[in-house]
C-alpha cells in the first residue's frame, strides 16, 4: 500500500467501507438504546401490571357500609366511609378509609352513589337547604337521584351496585374515570 497523505484516511474499497459504517452505526445505536428500552419498560410498570388498591372486599368487590336501620326513612342522603385494607405499592395499611359514598333509603330500596364528582374528581357535598348535591369545585349540581342539573358534569353521579345481607348494606365500590360522558372504571 502506498502512503496516502497524512491527513486523510487510508483508502478502503467503497463497499467494505460502507459495510463497516453500517455495522458500526447499527451496533452503536443498539447499545445506546438497550438500557433506555429496559428503563422505559420498567417505567411503564403501571401500564403493564394492574394491582388492586385494597384488600378485604368480597371476591366480587363488595364492602359493608352501614346498617339499613341507620339510614333515615325520609330518603335524606347520608355519607358513609368504607373501611378496608389499603394497598399502596409495597405497603398494606390495615383498616383504612378507602372511599366514601352516599346512601339513600327510599321505600325499602337503597340508592348508593360514589361521592366523587364525575366532572373532575372533587368530593360532592349534600346541601340539605337546597335538597341537592353540589360540587364545590366547579359548581356541578345533581338532584337527590344523582341526575345532573346543569351542563358542567359530563354525566350523572356514579351509581354503585349494592345488596343487603342481614340488615347490612354492602356496596360494590368502584371509581370511574372523570370528565367522560360514559361510566368507565378507572
Amino acid at each position: 500500500m502506498t502512503n496516502p497523505p497524512a491527513d486523510r484516511a487510508p483508502e478502503l474499497p467503497a463497499r467494505r467501507n460502507f459495510l463497516i459504517q453500517a455495522v458500526t452505526f447499527v451496533l452503536s445505536s443498539l447499545l445506546a438504546l438497550a438500557p433506555l428500552v429496559a428503563g422505559l419498560a420498567f417505567f411503564a410498570d403501571p401500564l403493564l401490571r394492574r394491582r388492586s388498591t385494597m384488600r378485604g372486599a368480597t371476591a366480587d368487590g363488595y364492602l359493608p357500609v352501614a346498617k339499613v336501620g341507620d339510614l333515615p326513612d325520609d330518603g335524606t342522603p347520608v355519607r358513609f366511609s368504607l373501611q378496608a385494607d389499603k394497598v399502596d405499592a409495597w405497603n398494606l395499611f390495615r383498616s383504612q378509609t378507602v372511599g366514601t359514598v352516599y346512601l339513600r333509603k327510599i321505600a325499602g330500596q337503597v340508592l348508593a352513589f360514589n361521592d366523587v364528582c364525575p366532572h373532575l374528581g372533587c368530593k360532592i357535598d349534600y346541601k340539605p337547604a337546597e335538597g341537592a348535591f353540589f360540587c364545590p369545585c366547579h359548581a356541578s349540581r345533581f338532584n337527590l337521584d344523582g341526575e345532573r342539573q346543569n351542563d358542567i358534569p359530563p354525566r350523572d353521579m356514579d351509581r354503585l351496585e349494592w345488596r343487603e345481607e342481614d340488615g347490612v348494606v354492602w356496596v360494590k365500590y368502584v371509581n370511574y374515570q372523570r370528565g367522560k360522558a360514559e361510566k368507565v372504571p378507572v
Binding site: 496516502p4 486523510r8 484516511a9 487510508p10 463497516i20 459504517q21 458500526t24 447499545l31
Partner: peptide, 22 residues
C-alpha cells in the same frame, strides 16, 4: 504510520468492546 479517523474503524472496535461488557 498513516492517520485514520475515529469513525468508523475505532468506533466499531469500541462498540464491540462495549457489547462484550454489556
Amino acid at each position: 504510520q498513516p492517520i485514520a479517523p475515529f469513525w468508523p474503524d475505532q468506533v466499531l472496535k469500541d462498540a464491540i468492546a462495549c457489547l462484550a461488557v454489556f
